[in-house]
Every structure is written in structure tokens, then in C-alpha cells.
């Protein structure tokens, strides 16, 4: 059972109150008519399925009914952070890799 922090309610709530809504930060093309079939198909149907850090859209369906973003590790299921719509994540796959690389360096030195 997840215990998820809703950035709008400002507190942790039970997973039962939430629904996942797929990948976050998908931007609709500004001019759909100007898209090639491939671009439009990518926007409409194709989603990332990373092993590791992933940004997802969730909705607090039973609580405030607001959508927000969740950064989640798809292997450990750990929720690294949640943030409001329109905001950018502070934790990304790159930043996590840097942390991992830095700790490996430390290990070499020690």
C-alpha cells in the first residue's frame, strides 16, 4: 500500500484515494495539422516504459480531485517526490545517475 503525498491537500493519504493516469509531461503538439503521421502517432500512442526513475500523472480521485505528478522508481516502487501540475521534477533519471556515479567515486577513493 502506497502512502502518497498530495501536493494540493498538503498531506499524505492512502493509495486508495488515488488513481494513476499514465506518463506525465506529455505535451500536445501545438499544430496537430502540421504533424507528420509519425509525430502524431508518437504523441497519441507511444509511452516510455523505463526501468528506473519514471514521471507519472496521478489524480487524487477521492480527495481534492486534482491531477499532480509523481516521480516513481519502477523497480523498487519507491515514490521519490510528488509535485504540482506545471512544475518540473527535481529528481530525474539523470540526477539519480549522477548521485549513483558520485557514490561509486567515493567508494573508489575510500
Amino acid at each position: 500500500m502506497f502512502y502518497i503525498y498530495c501536493p494540493y491537500c498538503g498531506e499524505h493519504r492512502e493509495e486508495e484515494e488515488f488513481h494513476p493516469k499514465g506518463q506525465a509531461h506529455i505535451e500536445r503538439p501545438k499544430e496537430p495539422e502540421a504533424c507528420s503521421d509519425e509525430e502524431w502517432g508518437d504523441y497519441l500512442f507511444f509511452r516510455d516504459n523505463p526501468r528506473g526513475v519514471h514521471h507519472e500523472l496521478w489524480v487524487h480521485a477521492v480527495g481534492c480531485r486534482k491531477f499532480f505528478n509523481v516521480t516513481r522508481h519502477t523497480v523498487t516502487y519507491e515514490i521519490l517526490e510528488t509535485y504540482k501540475m506545471g512544475e518540473q521534477p527535481s529528481i530525474t533519471a539523470d540526477s539519480q545517475n549522477q548521485v549513483a556515479a558520485a557514490s561509486r567515486q567515493e567508494g573508489v577513493r575510500a
Partner: peptide, 10 residues
Amino acid sequence: GVTTVFAKAT
């Protein structure tokens, strides 16, 4: 006051 789940009902 909170909106939550009571006996599976909102």
C-alpha cells in the same frame, strides 16, 4: 474536514 473513503463510498 476531509473528502475520503467511508465503507468504499466517497
